[in-house]
Amino acid sequence: MNELVFFLNNVVISGLVIGSIYALGAVGITLIFSILRFAHFAHADMMTLGAFFAFFLTAMFPAVGPAIGLPTAFVMLPIAMALTAVTAIYLDKGFYKPLRKHNVKPIVIVMASLGVTLMLQGLIRMFMGTSARSMYIDDRKDIYRIDLPFELASRPLVITDPQILLFVVLIVSVISLHLFLTRTRLGKAMRAMSDNPDLARVSGINTDTVVKVTWVIAGCLAAAAGTMLSLDVTLKPDLSFHLLLPIFAAAIVGGVGHPYGALAGGFVIGFAETLSVFNWAVLLRPFRDYLWFDLPSSLAIVPTEFKITVPFFILLAILVWRPTGLFKGKVL
């Protein structure tokens, strides 16, 4: 039974956690892709930036969280999201919009977004240094150990406070995004513009507003993902580095331009990662006497240090067999 608990902790819970992070990032990528028609490489750095804003606010008002009973950084999340959203709008205004006005090829804008990536990375490290920091300043991380009601399971399920909050954030974001896209005038206009940008212009839809809304949503989701991930682990300036490839893989697996697909894609990539670095020998050990072969001590599909290859090979596989993604996104 303990082996199963180990599996639950290392695969199911970890997969849900990292999958939620990827999903929040991938939804932003896919929205930007479908409205602005380019791969936004600076997205992972917007996640770091959001976490940095939350850290900054936590350092300024460290007593807020303990007063309410929630992590301070989580209480500050709405402000961090707003700051990131505003930054995103200004980044667009300063670096992407002038290129769009010049009618350059989309790939030039992709390159500009790489430039923005470097600028954000440089700035964040200039202000924060290069070391990792804890998002908890005046409070500490609550860890829940849930004992299972089985006799054989002596080990508890472990889940942390920020992980639970992350699931809450994800569920709230998904529901509000769904309502926004299907019930509001601007949300429908976003879908319309992703369907047919020329017709949107002809119909009198204010495309500038739609672009701004897209950046606000993408910025908010990125800030939420970055902050929640840093709360759960630590805030590292090179956070973005490990996120970029998985969130792009998630967006493409889900089908570009398809927010629900990106959500699913996030979990596909998250679980693929945890399943492939999981040591399956642990689960087989109780049956070792019945196996016809010697059980190796490590039976992980991919060694942990090669975890980064998992999203990459999923990405390549999907590009080869189904470039539109699982949910039939746009062929770009």
Binding site: R185, K188, A189, R191, A192, D195, N196, D198, L199, A200, V202, S203, G204, I205, N206
Partner: peptide
């Protein structure tokens, strides 16, 4: 559009993934 002029292009003149009603609503944006 604000001056009450409307245009229907020849091709790609609908939003395919939006419902009929949503297409009409977009006209009234």
């Amino acid at each position: 559009v604000g001056k009450k002029m409307a245009f229907v292009p020849q091709e790609k003149n609908i939003f395919p993934s939006l419902s009929v009603q949503e297409n009409l609503e977009m006209g009234a944006f």
